[in-house]
Amino acid sequence: MRDHKRLQSIALNLRKDILTEVFSASSGHPGGSLSIVEILTSLYYDEMNIDPANPQMEDRDRFVLSKGHACPALYAVLAEKGYFPKEELKNFRQIDSILQGHPDMKKVPGVDMSTGSLGQGLSVACGIAMSSKMYSSPWNVYAIVGDGEVQEGIIWEAAMSAANYKLDNLAVFLDSNGLQIDGKVEDVMDIGHINDKFKSFGWNVIEIDGHDFDQIFAALDMFKETVGKPTMIIAKTVKGKGVSFMENLAKWHGSAPNEEQYNEAIKELEVEVDE
């Protein structure tokens, strides 16, 4: 049995870390980092075969954060897992730090691919999955893409190739928080019935609440039972999840809280810990 209380407490810690990173940097992307916390917690604390003491372990599962701007969440989980000291989180986005504004695989232990320019991560994840299949390697590839990100053309090139090469070792989470920098995804450039789009591209599509651990794990179990097609887990999420004044507001896509807001947010999260 999975210890949901423990996972929830890890998620709360990650949220606090994310806010500390973005506050320390006075810049960064809190909204879309807070929306993927439960997904990352599930992957790094339950699903993936990884070893923080050996980040390059050959048979590890791979993870690609295609929406690289949400790296505060990735850095937080990597630090909590012990890939690098947690103190480094305070140097996020600052000169000489390993924690660049977007993930750099050359600098950060545990980052499998440098990302940030949207759409490219999914394409690379497909290549990693192709490589794994070709050599019958035992590892899976996990990725997270944003819902705004699927407006990029390369996403659809990659989606087509993933089905063509029957990448059933590839599980992608679509962080469906409904917002991008300029506003609602449906207002900026409507991605329409995204589930149907991926289905028609030949993917195994699963819809879940992206903050519900049971649903995340159920989806991952279905992924592992699926043969012959890649899996897209459409995760309905809340941008800015966990910080009341950030939730569902596009303005928190790419702006940092001031000191007062930061303290308020941390206080809010600590109340949740106590509960």
Binding site: R62, D112, V124, G127, I128, A129, M130, S131, I154, M160
Partner: peptide
């Protein structure tokens, strides 16, 4: 691997192979 008429994904997929050694 034929990636079809999709040069962005051609290069992206090549990166995936390179990242896997």
């Amino acid at each position: 691997f034929n990636m079809g008429i999709a040069e962005q994904n051609l290069i992206g997929a090549a990166c995936g192979f390179a990242a896997s050694g």
